[in-house]
């Protein structure tokens, strides 16, 4: 399993094994691929956003203050996820778990707000099939929302494992990699917020 004879205790747990180091590098490469995925959806939205034969325009149905709150909620969860890693590196598993749970609560809050927003939009006549703009809108924001949902399930499972096994090079690596994923969700949302919501509100 782990290459434990190569332990280097001068570095954080997650970097101590060869497996850990390679998993972390591999995860960065995965994030590069995720950038490409979201870029195509983003490109579709921008190429199709003027395809509005019928149906409401973003400026008529977006509640901008609501979106700002969603943005702050997700940003805060990214911040608390960073604090969890900080505590993990101080070997404080209790504080780490507390910050991770807070992170997940903010994540769930974001997801709840996004679903409520989708319901509001559908009631306002902007559905997946309304026109090209709304199809690409739901595809982009929906893919992001699915990533958030997967992240919540994934990190929940990792919390259970970390509590059961304690902080080892293996569990620390999993917590670390999942926190990279979580920061990445906010990274993507910055561009969704800017390109879709903010520019959608500009006349």
């Amino acid at each position: 399993m782990e290459n434990t004879n190569k332990l280097n205790t001068n570095v954080p747990l997650e970097y101590q094994t060869e497996t850990g180091k390679l998993n972390i590098l591999g995860f960065w490469i995965f994030l590069g691929a995720e950038v490409a995925l979201f870029s195509t959806l983003y490109a579709a939205y921008f190429a199709l956003k003027d395809g509005v034969m019928e149906g409401p325009l973003p400026i008529d149905v977006f509640d901008f203050n609501y979106t700002i709150i969603m943005t702050i909620v997700l940003l805060t969860s990214s911040f608390t996820s960073g604090l969890a890693i900080h505590e993990m590196r101080r070997n404080n598993i209790k504080a780490m778990v507390v910050w991770l749970v807070i992170t997940l609560l903010f994540g769930a809050g974001f997801l709840y707000m996004e679903i409520a927003e989708f319901i509001h939009l559908v009631h306002s006549g902007a559905t997946l099939g309304t026109n090209a703009l709304w199809s690409s809108f739901y595809l982009l924001t929906g893919t992001h929302g699915v990533h958030v949902a997967i992240g919540i399930v994934w990190i929940t499972l990792i919390i259970f494992q970390a509590l059961k096994r304690g902080l080892t090079p293996d569990t620390a690596k999993k917590v670390f990699v999942s926190s990279l994923y979580w920061h990445f969700l906010d990274f993507v949302w910055i561009f969704v917020f800017t390109g879709v919501y903010l520019l959608g509100m500009v006349k």
């Binding site: 960065w28 994030l31 590069g32 490409a36 979201f38 983003y42 490109a43 199709l48």
Partner: peptide, 20 residues
């Protein structure tokens, strides 16, 4: 990796918008 991803993203998004 992140710089190359940023390059791909700009090419995909700006390129698609330009072409369309």
């Amino acid at each position: 990796k992140m710089f190359s991803a940023a390059f791909f993203a700009i090419v995909i998004v700006a390129g698609s918008v330009w072409v369309m």
